[in-house]
Design a protein around this nucleic acid. Sequence first.
DNA 1: ATTCTGACCTATC
DNA 2: TGATAGGCCAGAA
Length: 124
Amino acid sequence: MKSPTAKQKDVPAPRHQSFFEDVWDVVRQIPPGRVTTFGAIAKYLGTKMSARMVGWALNAVHAVQPPVPAHRVVNRLGMLSGKAHFSPPSSMQEALEKEGVLIKDDIIRNFDKHFWDPSTALSL
DNA sequence: ATTCTGACCTATC
DNA sequence: TGATAGGCCAGAA
């Protein structure tokens, strides 16, 4: 049944999930000990996607469920750009080191080695 | 309604 | 060689 005058606000059935959810979904698929970049996620979602939105998506991760391992997402240079947004900031580095990722000067060592590309991993 | 910013990346001068 | 501008979507003032 449906309410004639109801706006159906409890029916969150968007044709395509918000861009944010798409990003979170990809980030959640990042295996431990691996890291990815904003551009990689953006490119995987679509060329029309800009890396900027990926960052904004993670910006709203603070109240999303299930939790998103945003600490595995870094910029193309492998530097913990979002480190300052963690609580505490060192939490991001600790989380990565805990998974076996060496970090020096807020930059991931062997970044290309830990680099996890969704287009390749989730590649059809 | 408009304006601005935001954890980026790529291209061009 | 470095610096600058543009691009994309969403949320807040």
